[in-house]
Write a protein that binds this DNA or RNA. Structure first.
Length: 422
RNA sequence: GUGGGCGUAGCUCAACUGGCUAGAGCACUGGACUGUGGCUCCAGGGGUUGCGGGUUCGACCCCCGUCGCCCACCCCA
């Protein structure tokens, strides 16, 4: 036997029966984002490695050990994108989009790649819906972005499965000060920290705050809070943001332990979390990144955005609703080649009118064709055999109420059936 | 990268302490019903028990190796 080929580890097929969920997610997201003035952008799967090193941060886990990196034929180091914000920022800078509008709002959907060990809710190729707004730095904007995210959850009927958690991680002025204070506190208890956190102490001390290790958690719980060390401007910004969130009628909880794994975040950060996805609790996450564009060599333009994990969202949707594929309106049961010749022009015309028609192509008994029509869930079965051919008519059977009648197989007649019984 | 669990039909699972030709339900194909679906009954197709080796009179079962999947750590969407 020939060796069976399988998909690459961590890469998954999405089969047709799953598509209704993906389509609903895509359609709701598109119409919602566009109602807020966001425009779709598409970016390449591959970027120069340097973009992610500079954008995400070269000491982050994502860049350090999770990227698919390879050398191109010309010797250039390229990477499959592990996330989209840096890519969209690159496009924003490259096309000087800041000169075209004062605010630039984009959304994007596509696959991301991270070489991690696959697990519940975690794949090596996964999909994200991204939203990025460049050019505005204002509490009401932040609230609006979060309101949009929460509304998406509502539209997908998963709002009871998630909670919006929000935090503020300071600005270029107050974060370094807080960072020192935190390091001082943590250094005092260094012996009790897990080995990963000992390492984080130097590289990314804020991350220790959401370590899952029990003793680290306890230490984090009593750690100095960023909230108590924000500068006046940041504090005011955060308070106003919360106020606008209330105005938008978005439920949220403040979680001082939320930090981000990517270096570009500043100020407002938030996550849409769930407890229903195993160890993976983030369904969506985002925040403000006011220095990213400039750090990537662009103009000094602030930004805010978020990414929604599509697979995780779909998993939650599946738990809450049963969606099915569309079913055919007509199944044409044909008993011989003559019958096919007779009916094919009509079938093609109906399909042109966007009416889903199925026709049997193999030589099958009427019984088995009926079975097939039933299995496909066709609304009507249209029978074409010797008797019908003689009369120039077809027999139409309503599969639900079993009513059966003959009619002339004109497109108009079929369309009338569709109208009468939509 | 580290740890744990699991690999039997397309799917979900059986098969004693190592012992008959590896079974069942669902699904599939057909028949009962020669041109009428769902329900019922009957029949049929479908397996290198992940792969390789070892132990044994005998291996789905035990041992070694290997590959794969899942879960957790880690990380994050």
């Amino acid at each position: 036997m020939v060796k069976m080929l399988k998909a690459v580890r961590g890469f998954k097929d999405v089969l047709p029966e799953d598509m209704p969920y993906w389509h609903l997610l895509g359609e709701e997201a598109r119409s919602l984002f566009e109602s807020y003035g966001y425009r779709e952008i598409r970016i390449p799967v591959l970027e120069k490695l340097e973009l992610f090193q500079r954008g995400i941060g070269s000491t982050t886990d994502i860049v350090e050990k999770e990227m698919y990196v390879f050398e191109d034929k010309g010797g250039e180091l390229l990477a499959l994108r592990p996330e989209a914000t840096a890519c969209i920022a690159r496009a924003f800078i490259e096309h000087r989009l800041d000169l075209k509008h004062t605010t630039n709002k984009y959304y994007f959907f596509g696959p991301m790649f991270r070489h991690e060990r696959p697990q519940a809710g975690r794949l090596r190729q996964f999909h994200q819906l991204n939203v990025e707004a460049f050019g505005v730095r204002s509490p009401s904007m932040d609230a609006e972005v979060m309101a949009m995210l929460y509304t998406l959850a509502r539209k997908l009927h998963i709002e009871d499965a998630v909670s919006l958690e929000i935090n503020h991680i300071g600005c270029a002025k107050c974060r370094p000060i807080y960072r020192e204070i935190l390091i001082n506190y943590l250094a005092g208890q260094k012996d009790k920290l897990c080995k990963d956190c000992k390492r984080r102490l130097e590289r990314n001390p804020l991350r220790i705050l959401d370590c899952k290790n029990e003793t680290c958690k306890e230490i984090a719980l009593n750690a100095p809070r960023i909230m108590d060390h924000l500068c006046d401007e940041c504090r005011r910004y955060f308070e106003e943001t919360l106020d606008f969130l209330s105005v938008c009628d978005v439920p949220f909880v403040i979680n001082p332990l939320i930090v981000r794994g990517l270096d570009y975040y500043t100020g407002t950060v938030f996550e849409l979390t769930t407890t229903e996805l195993g160890a993976q609790n983030a369904v969506a996450a985002g925040g403000r990144y006011d220095n990213l564009i400039e750090e990537l060599g662009g103009p000094s333009v602030p930004g805010i955005g978020f990414a929604v994990g599509a697979e995780r969202t779909v998993a939650l949707m599946r738990k809450r609703m049963k969606l099915e594929e569309k079913k055919p309106t007509f199944f044409f049961a044909v008993l011989d080649a003559e019958a096919k010749r007779f009916i094919i022009p009509v079938v093609l015309s109906l399909r042109e009118k966007k009416i889903r028609c199925e026709m049997e192509h193999e030589e099958k008994s009427l019984k088995s064709q009926m079975r097939k029509a039933n299995k496909l869930g066709a609304k009507y079965t249209v029978m074409v055999g010797e008797d019908e051919l003689k009369k120039g008519k077809v027999t139409v059977r309503n599969m639900k109420d079993k009513n059966q009648f003959e009619m002339e197989p004109s497109v108009e007649n079929f369309l009338r059936l569709v109208e009468e019984n939509p």
